[in-house]
Each structure stands twice: as structure tokens, then as C-alpha cells.
Design a protein around this nucleic acid. Structure first.
Length: 655
RNA sequence: GGGGUUGUAGCUCAGUCGGUUAGAGUGCCAGCCUGUCACGCUGGAAGUCGCGGGUUCGAGCCCCGUCAGCCCCGCCA
């Protein structure tokens, strides 16, 4: 089929903006065919562009033979230009924004055809599997849902830039090629050709640069920047992600928080929500105690309770030994009121217990008060008096379900934190229509790393110790609090920051506390120590996860839905097949040798042009190093270009 | 690194106890159709049951391995 040329065919209107106001006008529109409905001598086409969908119509009596011929070949996703007159419809469609009107076609241009899409492009049907969506991301992105998400994302970025500009922040760009740092996540490394054997690291965050810009006197820094972490993925974690990175001079914790709250107040309406500043400030210790999480979801009111003392005299050994442990181990509980909770079935409780076990619990003791009265996994240890005591302690006035965890605070927090969210959701005791912002503050400065057998910085090693805890730095680092704060929304950490250390002496003490000696500190962070010694102002800031924020504003539960070209959970791009192996020549230039655990050989599938007598030589000849289980490559054999499908076979270790 | 789960037509899925020629909806193709908008009606094509091996008279179904997607734990300053 001969395609039309765009030539000077320009749109006069966007599809979404047409209505009865334009009736009678001749318009030119552009877009994709969402759907063609051919009723014989009457043909409808739904034309989609970024702004909406409008119905085109033509009938046999009035349309020219040329126009009719074109209309009959149009299929889904063809790229069209339409010229026609806006007319009030005979049959209006109240479900469609432009449902009052249609375009009576006078001319149609077909700028491109399209194969039948491998996945549904409209949102009406069922969504395709995600691997398919990721492979054909360019088509998936045509869908309304993703278009809306991308537009929302752009809105968030624009509002953010305007907000900070309004507050005199300066927009910076910091290096993508930087220095690998010892603390924190694994770095993505970039080999340097010029300096063979040496590597740049992609930034996990522009942390040090933004601090140095405070030393330089810019006072207010903002950057919307890409960050990279070579760690395993989650539904809310990608290896490259976008931060709204903020840093300010001459500020206290509350100044940074107030600034960020102002931004949230402006962003919340994008989700039809209202954010009311100031947000709740919840100490880390209380968050862990009440919610078992450092990012509590406050849309559920239920709190964890300590019921250890109730079992001091109990014959239930599991619980009593905790009571005897002088606080080392505790019995903690969650109580959910209501008929539904009290009527929880054995099967449901077993499922919950499985989850608890996966989180490291031995089981999930429970007690429930329902239609059949009191039931519990440890009922034989609970007499009437004990039951009353338990009931009173839990505030269980009527029916309901309590689940228990016993162990160290870390253990019980992990289990009950998860149970709290699960039960709240399944029992409908989580108001998912609300937005609940809060600040979690007073984080510990350090945590013990089993792997390294030393304390490591919880946030990062530039975080200011809490002024009241300075002397603990050397004596009891584990108890030292930090001036660090996380912004939490609906159980997600959407941002985190701190007041930084701004004097070289405190910074040195900090390095000492985490086992970085003078010489090592000098070598790795000499530039920072230098900077701090030349008049660094008191400063602090925070970084917001843009992707997560947009995810929550969009009301979706996966970060991939708000990223145009995301990676899979295995950190691969299904569309481009990145990462991929590179030419030996490239590696030689970089003086890099690779160890490949398996060798790959040309496989068994050949394309039409390969004569039979050449197939065996090809199979024998080619040994490929590729991470792909199979791939197609082109090679020249006896002067003939052939395509070879290579498949991976197990082989000896590659030398 | 570990655990769970999924993989059957272009797409979404069903497939019983291992037993005839592997089905449905949708999409696609063809014909008919002047008010559709999830158009309708009639007909048709369409399958490496992810891949490899095994058990069996017989495997989509059972076993072993493997690849890929998703979720979680560890990890993520």
C-alpha cells in the first residue's frame, strides 16, 4: 500500500478538545486508529492522540470512492490524518469526552500502517503479562494508563522545580562519572580507557557534591537526578531511579522538614489529596515499638502492644521465658477488633502463620474472641482469670483477633509489622483512600553489621550525631541517635535526609567510630575533610524518591508503572536486552578480561539460506560468550551472509 | 544468596484421576450489515502446552534439570 506523505498536513485541533463549540468547523486531526468499525456502507473510526479520542465517520453515499477505499484498509494502530467537519452526533455517547460530536470525513491520510499489536493497546481488555509489556514497551506506553502516569510524572517534576525556584534554590548538575565510595550500596562501575585498571562509579546519590556546594556558598541546592545502585530489586526499587535531591545551608531539621512539607502540600492535589502541614514527627523508637516498622503506615490505627508482663506467672513456657529475660525478649501483640477478625478461620490463621515463619518466627500464637467464644493456640494455659486480664490489656471489649510474637525486639517488630499491614488490609481496617504523611525522626546513627563485624552508618557517615548523644560516639555508638529523618507516606519511605556534620573534627570522630582510620579517611574523603576545614556552613538536606512519590500519587503499587523504560526484577531490559556482552576489541581497549561461567556454542536452528553441508561447520565453529540463553547473530560463511540462532549449552569453565 | 509463584493459540485464561483430534473468550482473516462506540451475524485460519531430559503402553498433567516474568527475605549508607 502506498502511504500518504505528511507534507503540509497539520492538525488544527487536538482530539480531546473538540466539542459542540466547534460544530460546523472543518478540522484536521492526527493520531492513531484505536478502533475501526465497519458497518457496511457506514464506517466509524476512533482516532486517538495524546489528548483524547474522537470518532470519525463516513458513509457510502457521501464519501468519494477514494476515501472509501482508504477507510476499508484502515486497521488498529494505523497512523492517520483526518480532515472533516465537526457535527453533532445522531447517537451521542455519554461515556466519551467527545461523545457529543463526530467528524464527518472529507479526506483521510494514511501516514503509516501497523502490524497487529502483540498486546492490547487499549485499557478496556485484560492487561498483558508484564514480560510482554516490557518487551513491547513502546506499545504499552500508548495505553491511557501509562500515558497518564508519564504525564503525572512530568507534572510532579515541573511543580517541584517551580516550587524550589520560588524558594531561591539553584538547580545543579553533578557528575555521573564519580568516585567509588566504600560505604553503602554496590556501585555500578564504569571502566576508564584512558586510565586502564581504574574505574568510575555511577552515583548512588550526589551526596558529597551537594554538601560541597554548600561549602561553596550556594546555600540552596536542588537537583532532580538519576541515581544508581547495584542491588537486588523490589516492586518499589529499580537499579536506576530518580531523586529529588535537596540541600540547604544554615538550617535545622525542622527547617528542612517545613520546606519539604510545602512541596508535599503542592503535590498532594495531583492525587486528589490534601496534605496538611506540619506532619506528625514520630521518633524511630516509637515507630518500631508501635508499628514494628521505621516506615509505618498510619492509615491503620492498630498499634503493637507489649504484653510480656501478663505472662510472668504463666505456665506457657514460650511466653514466660520471655518475661524472665529482663527485656532481652518480649511478648508483643496486635489486636484487631470486629466480628470478621474474631471469626478468622483456621485456614486463614495457618496462612498468616506461614508468612510469620518466612519472616523468621517459630509460629504465630493467636487468641480470638468470636461467636464461639474464646479460642487460642495456647488456650490450655489460659484460665478464665488470665483470659480476662489478656482481654483487658488488649482492649478487647468485644469480638476480635490478637496475634502474638515473642523474641527480640527486632524479631517481633518484623513479624508484627508485617501482620499489622496484612490484617489491616484483609480486614478492611486500612483506609486506602487517605494519604498519611509523617516524619520518622531520631534514627540511630549506627547499626551493627554482622558482615563487617563493626558499626556502620545507618544513613551515611556524614550524618550529624544528635547533640545530646555526642559523648556516646566513642563509648556506646549503638545508642547514639542521628539528626536524621525519613519522610513516610502510606508505609513507603519517600524521602530521607539529615543534618550533616559540618566540622572536620566531628567528621573524623565519625570515621573513627565506624572503623575508618585517619589514613583511609584521608585517602577516600580527603576532599571532604579539606572542604569542612575551609569554613563549611551548618547544613542539611534530604532526597525524595521521585519514582516512589509518583507511584503513590498515581495510586499504583509498582514503580515500573511510572517509569518509561524500567528494568525487570533481574535488572535486565527486555526491550533492548541490556546488559549485553561487548566486542572483544572493546574489552581489549579497556584491558578487561572476563570470566564467563558457561560457554555458548552455535545451536541447531538455521535459516533458509544455509546449505545443508555448511550447517555442521557452523555449529562446530562458533563459540559465543553471551549472557543470553539464545540469540540470533549474523555471520559470513564462505562469502554468504547467514543468520544463526545460537543457544546456550552447559560447558566447562571458560578460561 | 534463599523462599514462593507463574509459563498452554497474537492476547487473557480453562484444561478434572496421566487416556479420543488440547478448548473458551478476545484478537486476526473473509463475507454480510446505515448509527456503531466492548457494534452485530456467518464462516475461517491460528498450538515447539517456556526449554531439555526422565518415568510410562501413553505426559499439557508425574519426576529431575534449566530459562524467563512476578512477589518476598537477605541486601538496599
Amino acid at each position: 500500500m502506498k502511504l500518504d506523505r505528511l507534507g503540509d498536513f497539520q492538525r488544527t485541533h487536538r482530539n480531546g478538545e473538540l466539542g459542540l463549540a466547534q460544530a460546523g468547523q472543518t478540522v484536521r486531526l492526527l493520531g492513531w486508529c484505536r478502533k475501526a468499525r465497519n458497518l457496511g456502507s457506514l464506517i466509524f473510526i476512533d482516532l486517538r492522540d495524546r489528548w483524547g479520542v474522537v470518532q470519525l465517520v463516513a458513509n457510502e453515499e457521501t464519501a468519494s470512492p477514494e476515501l472509501l477505499a482508504k477507510l476499508k484498509v484502515v486497521r488498529g494502530e494505523f497512523v492517520l490524518g483526518a480532515e472533516g467537519v465537526v457535527a453533532e452526533r445522531e447517537a451521542k455517547n455519554p461515556n466519551m469526552a467527545t461523545g457529543d460530536i463526530e467528524i464527518r470525513l472529507t479526506d483521510l491520510r494514511i501516514f503509516n500502517t501497523a502490524q497487529t499489536p502483540p498486546l492490547p493497546v487499549d485499557d478496556a481488555g485484560q492487561e498483558a503479562n508484564e514480560d510482554l509489556r516490557l518487551k513491547y514497551r513502546f506499545l504499552d506506553l500508548r495505553r491511557d494508563k501509562l500515558q497518564r502516569n508519564m504525564i503525572l510524572r512530568s507534572e510532579v517534576a515541573n511543580i517541584t522545580r517551580n516550587y524550589f525556584r520560588k524558594h531561591d534554590f539553584i538547580d545543579f548538575e553533578t557528575p555521573i562519572l564519580g568516585r567509588s565510595t566504600p560505604e553503602g550500596a554496590r556501585d555500578y562501575l564504569v571502566p576508564s580507557r584512558v586510565h586502564s585498571g581504574e574505574f568510575f562509579a555511577l552515583p548512588q546519590s550526589p551526596q558529597l557534591y551537594k554538601q560541597l556546594l554548600q561549602v561553596s556558598g550556594f546555600e540552596r541546592y536542588i537537583q532532580i537526578c538519576r541515581c544508581f545502585r547495584d542491588e537486588d530489586l523490589r516492586a518499589d526499587r529499580q537499579p536506576e531511579f530518580t531523586q529529588i535531591d535537596v540541600e540547604m545551608s544554615f538550617v535545622r531539621q525542622q527547617d528542612v522538614q517545613t520546606m519539604i512539607e510545602g512541596l508535599m502540600v503542592e503535590l498532594a492535589p495531583l492525587a486528589g489529596q490534601t496534605a496538611v502541614a506540619p506532619f506528625l514527627r514520630l521518633p524511630y523508637k516509637d515507630a518500631m515499638e508501635w508499628y514494628g516498622s521505621d516506615k509505618p503506615d498510619l492509615r491503620c490505627a492498630t498499634k503493637i502492644q507489649d504484653v510480656t508482663a501478663l505472662f510472668a506467672q504463666s505456665e506457657f513456657n514460650l511466653f514466660r521465658t520471655a518475661a524472665d529475660s529482663h527485656g532481652q525478649r518480649r511478648v508483643r501483640a496486635l489486636f484487631f477488633p470486629g466480628e470478621q477478625a474474631g471469626g478468622y478461620s483456621r485456614k486463614q490463621l495457618d496462612e498468616l502463620q506461614d508468612v510469620a515463619k518466612h519472616l523468621g518466627a517459630g509460629g504465630l500464637p493467636y487468641a480470638k474472641w468470636g461467636k464461639e467464644g474464646f479460642a487460642s493456640s495456647f488456650k490450655k494455659f489460659v484460665d478464665a482469670e488470665a483470659e480476662t486480664a489478656l482481654r483487658t490489656a488488649l482492649g478487647a471489649s468485644a469480638e476480635g483477633l490478637a496475634v502474638f510474637a515473642v523474641g527480640t525486639d527486632a524479631q517481633t517488630s518484623k513479624v508484627l509489622g508485617e501482620m499489622r499491614l496484612r490484617l489491616a488490609k484483609t480486614l478492611g481496617q486500612m483506609d486506602e483512600s487517605r494519604f498519611e504523611f509523617l516524619w520518622v525522626v531520631d534514627f540511630p546513627l549506627f547499626e551493627w553489621s554482622e558482615e563487617n563485624q563493626r558499626f556502620v552508618a545507618c544513613h551515611h557517615p556524614f550524618t550529624s550525631p544528635h547533640p545530646d548523644d555526642l559523648e556516646l560516639l566513642a563509648t556506646n555508638p549503638g545508642a547514639c541517635r542521628a539528626v536524621a529523618y525519613d519522610l513516610v507516606l502510606n508505609g513507603y519511605e519517600v524521602g530521607g535526609g539529615s543534618i550533616r556534620i559540618h566540622d572536620a573534627e566531628t567528621q573524623s570522630r565519625m570515621f573513627r567510630a565506624i572503623g575508618i582510620g585517619e589514613a583511609e579517611a584521608r585517602e577516600k574523603f580527603g576532599f571532604l575533610l579539606d572542604a569542612l576545614s575551609y569554613g563549611a556552613p551548618p547544613h542539611g538536606g534530604l532526597a525524595l524518591g521521585l519514582d516512589r512519590l509518583v507511584m503513590l500519587l498515581a495510586g499504583v503499587d509498582n514503580i515500573r508503572e511510572v517509569i518509561a523504560f524500567p528494568k525487570t526484577a533481574q535488572a535486565r531490559c527486555l526491550m533492548t536486552d541490556a546488559p549485553n556482552t561487548v566486542d572483544a576489541k572493546q574489552l581489549r581497549e579497556l584491558r578487561i578480561q572476563t570470566e564467563t561461567p558457561q560457554q555458548y556454542r552455535a545451536g541447531v536452528m538455521f535459516f533458509e539460506s544455509v546449505p545443508a553441508e555448511l550447517q555442521a561447520p557452523i555449529a562446530a565453529l562458533r563459540t559465543l560468550s553471551t549472557s543470553q540463553p539464545s540469540s540470533t547473530s549474523t555471520m559470513v560463511l564462505d562469502g554468504e551472509i547467514v543468520k544463526v540462532e545460537t543457544t546456550r549449552i552447559p560447558g566447562p569453565e571458560f578460561e
